[in-house]
Amino acid sequence: MSTVLKVENLHVYYGSIHAIKGVSFEVGEGEIVTLIGANGAGKSTTLNTVGGLLKPREGSVEFEGKSILGVAPHKVVNQGMALCPEGRRVFAQLSVRENLEMGAYTRPVSEIAETLEIVYEHFPRLKERQTQMAGTLSGGEQQMLAMGRALMSKPRLMMLDEPSMGLAPILVDQIFEIIKALNKKGTTILLVEQNAQMALSIADRAYVLETGRIVNSGTGKDLLNDDSVKKAYLGG
């Protein structure tokens, strides 16, 4: 198994606040890897740094063997990774279809139709609503749109930030089923979640973040049965 993403000794600051303090982790090809941790542990900061939105003060981020730190933020998606951001951040005043087209912004127009069909297969609901403004969708539909939009760039690595946030349990199940299906079709997944139970149950491997540091790691199964993880994140 080759390494898709390699993050080493990452330090990120917000002004003078040291948010990420030397985080290192790896994601192998075809894996589902999850970062779990409480609010403010640095999960989203880590993901946003990998996605190019934040610049680290120290450390390295390598995607498929190439450093992405010198790459302009808007060119990171070209490398083959897509970030589905926290809070979905769909373009509320663009239609569902236009949102998906934006996801394929860096790709030739001639290839969009084909990818659109693939996305609609995963999310039939989006096809039904393609002319609707994204802001009028329900929370679950917006999450599907955000994921579909990220898929439109045909990423080899898909990063998902809190896809379950604010969703009803039945929708959470659905979203996680889709993540598993995407992974089966060959997309490597890096998942950030507060819903540790859910995340660990589908993850091959997991890292536990606490106040900007990785404090524990292992396979999803191991961590599900780990006493300290149980106590802190799984409600005993």
Partner: peptide, 24 residues
């Protein structure tokens, strides 16, 4: 147009537009 839609995307959310590969 693609450029015009990108402008609307940037007007709503510069960060998300950047993630799409749009040069803000």
């Amino acid at each position: 147009t693609k450029m015009g839609k990108a402008m609307r995307a940037v007007s709503e959310d510069k960060g998300a537009a950047t993630l799409m590969g749009i040069n803000v």
